[in-house]
Design a protein around this nucleic acid. Structure first.
Lengths: 141, 141
DNA sequence: TATGCTATTGCAAGTATTTTCAATAAGGAG
DNA sequence: CTCCTTATTGAAAATACTTGCAATAGCATA
């Protein structure tokens, strides 16, 4: 019954509150097959909770992203979308056909380490988007 | 006199046109010390070319980004900004204080190579933004 | 379980971004 | 240098996103 339980704990522990609106956003992203724009989230949310406003959606998304419960990602055409924060993973997207491939986090660990060494930062980005050409478009270009 | 000459050649070769408006955007980004939002670009551009519209700025930025003449980047609070595409480089930004550090492209080459091997893609992202905690905020958190 | 503090919401107004379409102008061809 | 094709611009309307503030409702505490 509760993929959202941990999220609730996280927020409370930090002095914030879990609300029906935020839960609704989390559920929607949980059931989404892929990234959603704020407007897409709003459409679904408004259906489930009539009366809920766009303002709330935008604020919930930014808030949840700030707490790493959801991830923001750029699409191929530079638009902002969101998805549920699952285990850290990344995307490869083809600049020509838009095809997306998911990438394991492990493959980036070495870079994270070298970045941390050179900069002194602690890096915790859990989602990156790499652009390029997929095997198919690579040929035909 | 012409940091913009190569850009012009690139566009023509692809059947597109270089216009005063696009040149203006390139110049502004060229002189900018850091990322600018579309609105900031517009303010400056309108000063240099009265009559030019916001619409044109948005279109020029998206167009130039599509041709890799400028880069789109996310700020710490998830907003879209643009900068001139220089040699490939990346940013580390602190989630707490917003401090930005520039990272050399070379440090990412190994990952690019392993991503290309596992996926068959040709990767050409020239700008990524990593988030985390800077050395200072790392302590006080 | 009742109470109080304050994080969060909804509304309305403001700002930013996108879209449509007719008018304009870049730049290749003659 | 002029003409022609069509990529690009500007204007206005539509849509998307943000902000300020009063009203509401989580949840910690007793």
């Amino acid at each position: 019954m509760s993929c959202t339980e941990p999220a609730l704990q996280t927020l409370r522990a930090r002095g914030f509150r879990m609300t029906p609106q935020r839960l609704c956003v989390l559920e929607i992203l949980h059931n989404a097959p892929e990234h959603l724009t704020p407007q897409q989230v709003y459409e679904q949310a408004a259906r489930a909770m009539p009366g809920l406003t766009e303002t709330t959606i935008y604020r919930a998304l930014e808030f949840l992203a700030g707490h790493n419960l959801v991830n923001a990602a750029l699409t191929a055409n530079g638009k902002l979308t969101y998805e549920l924060a699952r285990r850290a993973h990344h995307h490869l997207v083809c600049r020509v056909c838009g095809q997306q491939v998911e990438i394991d986090h492990e493959i980036l660990l070495p870079v994270y380490r070298s970045l941390e060494e050179t900069s002194g930062f602690h890096i915790n980005t859990s989602h990156l988007t790499f652009f390029g050409l997929c095997p198919h478009c690579k040929e035909t270009e």
